[in-house]
């Protein structure tokens, strides 16, 4: 049954990352973070981008470390789970670099 847990790791990470970025977005807009500046730019989008990139890095690590070799349905499903999570995180959270933060 460990293969089921390994299959769920990628999508599970997406779920956590999606909640974290969405939560950070809500907190930031409520607490007026876009007005706060850091040397690299406004704090709010930077925080979300950093979180997103960190999450994508973990997805990358999952693909490398959690990807079994070999054929068979179970190995294929673990690989599929890794990629589903990574693509979902990349696609659903790309607006952190493309959309107006709190407008």
């Amino acid at each position: 049954m460990t293969w089921v847990a390994r299959m769920l790791a990628g999508p599970g990470l997406w779920a956590v990352l999606f909640c974290a970025v969405y939560g950070l977005h809500g907190l930031g807009c409520a607490w007026d973070w876009p007005a706060r500046q850091t040397p690299l730019g406004p704090l709010h989008p930077l925080g979300m981008i950093a979180l997103w990139l960190a999450g994508l890095a973990v997805h990358g690590a999952l693909i490398v470390l959690n990807g079994p070799g070999g054929e068979g349905t179970q190995a294929g499903l673990i690989r599929a789970g890794n990629w589903i999570g990574a693509v979902a995180s990349a696609v659903t959270l790309f607006p952190v670099i493309a959309a107006s933060t709190c407008g």
Binding site: W14, A15, F18, V21, Y22, H25, G26, C29, V87, A88, V91, T92, L93, F94, P95, V96, A98, A99, S100, T101, C102, G103
Partner: peptide, 26 residues
Amino acid sequence: GLWVHHMFTVGIPHMALAFFSAASAL
């Protein structure tokens, strides 16, 4: 990850809408 697409007109910021829009397409 789609539920907010029923709430696109309640005044949620565009970035948050975009998360759910992309998820709904995906």
